[in-house]
Computed example of a mutant assay.
Amino acid sequence: MAFSEPVDLAGKSPRERILLTAHDLFYCEGIRATGIDRVIAEAGVTKVTFYRHFPSKNKLIIEFLDYRHERWMTWFKGALERHGGHRSKGVAALVPALNEWFSDPGYRGCAFLNSVGEVGQAIPEVVEITRNHKHDMTEAIETLLPAARSRWADAKALALAVDGAILHAQFDSPAEALKPLERLVKMIKEPAPARAKAS
């Protein structure tokens, strides 16, 4: 299944249908552009049922991001593993893993960065959730690096480059978006002294 492919709602509880519907609409069309009535209609629930589970749109937004975090991190770690991240390739697995996501027809960038841009000032919890998400992403990248004093700093640099590629891929081809990250990966894998000796 493609990462962004909508989840089948058949057999899901009303709460799950609301959350999954909101996930797809918020990610594909934006939080502000998606009204509660649209979520209710597409989830196939009543307004009473909706508000029993989600007292406000803000609460739904927060739960959407919590769910998105779990779903994305599961995909990210799996993609790194599929591309050899914990075997021979190390951080080089970042590039094919992200290419897999960027090439998905449903790709709309980072749900967390998008949400901060849309509602971060109005809902401070969105900023905190995003900060935690990016920390967890950086930790996943750190596991691909060999033990070294600079390991966390290198992981943070790579995470920042990943975010840049995520943004760039929204208006350019995956290959172009990933070029700077690929360059950084090579520099970290082969530090300057090693390159100097080789030349």
Rank of each mutant, 00 (worst) to 15 (best):
S88H: 13
H53E: 03
E182Q: 15
I62D: 12
L80H: 09
G30Y: 01
W152K: 15
K47D: 10
L60T: 01
D104K: 00
V48I: 10
T49K: 06
L60S: 08
A97R: 09
D8E: 11
V7F: 06
L184Q: 04
K89W: 08
K156S: 12
V7K: 11
L145F: 04
W75Q: 03
W72K: 13
P105I: 00
L80A: 12
V116K: 12
P180V: 00
K12R: 15
D66T: 05
L19G: 07
S199H: 15
F3M: 07
I166M: 15
D37M: 11
E142P: 05
Y67G: 06
T46L: 03
P14Q: 08
E190C: 11
A111Q: 06
M1Q: 12
G78H: 03
D136V: 01
C28G: 13
T130Q: 15
A22P: 09
P124R: 00
I36N: 13
E100I: 00
I62C: 14
R151S: 09
K12M: 11
R71S: 08
D136Q: 14
N99M: 07
E42H: 12
K189V: 01
A147E: 13
L184V: 00
S88C: 11
I18H: 09
N114E: 03
K57S: 03
P124L: 01
F3S: 10
S56W: 04
A155T: 06
P174Y: 08
A10Y: 12
G84K: 10
F112K: 08
T21E: 06
A159I: 05
D163V: 02
H86I: 03
R82I: 01
D136C: 06
L184W: 01
G117T: 01
P105W: 02
E182F: 02
H86L: 13
A148K: 05
P191K: 10
A194F: 10
A196S: 11
L178Y: 05
E176F: 09
N132Y: 08
L9Q: 07
I18R: 07
E128T: 06
P174V: 03
D24P: 14
S115A: 14
E142A: 15
D24C: 10
A175W: 04
L19P: 05
Q170C: 13
A22L: 01
K47W: 01
V126H: 05
E42M: 09
L65V: 01
K197V: 04
L144M: 08
A161H: 10
G84F: 05
K77L: 12
A196V: 08
K59P: 05
K186W: 04
A153C: 13
I123H: 03
Y107M: 04
K12D: 08
R68E: 13
F50A: 04
R32F: 00
T49D: 09
L65E: 00
E182L: 11
A175K: 14
K12Q: 15
R52H: 14
D163H: 10
A10Q: 15
E5Y: 05
G106R: 02
K179Q: 12
L9R: 10
K189G: 15
L98Y: 03
K89M: 11
A2C: 14
H135Q: 11
I31K: 09
I141D: 12
F76V: 05
W152D: 14
A140M: 05
H135V: 04
D163W: 04
A153L: 11
R52P: 09
D104L: 01
A2E: 15
R15Q: 08
A157W: 09
L19T: 02
V45N: 05
A2L: 14
G30F: 00
V126D: 02
S4W: 12
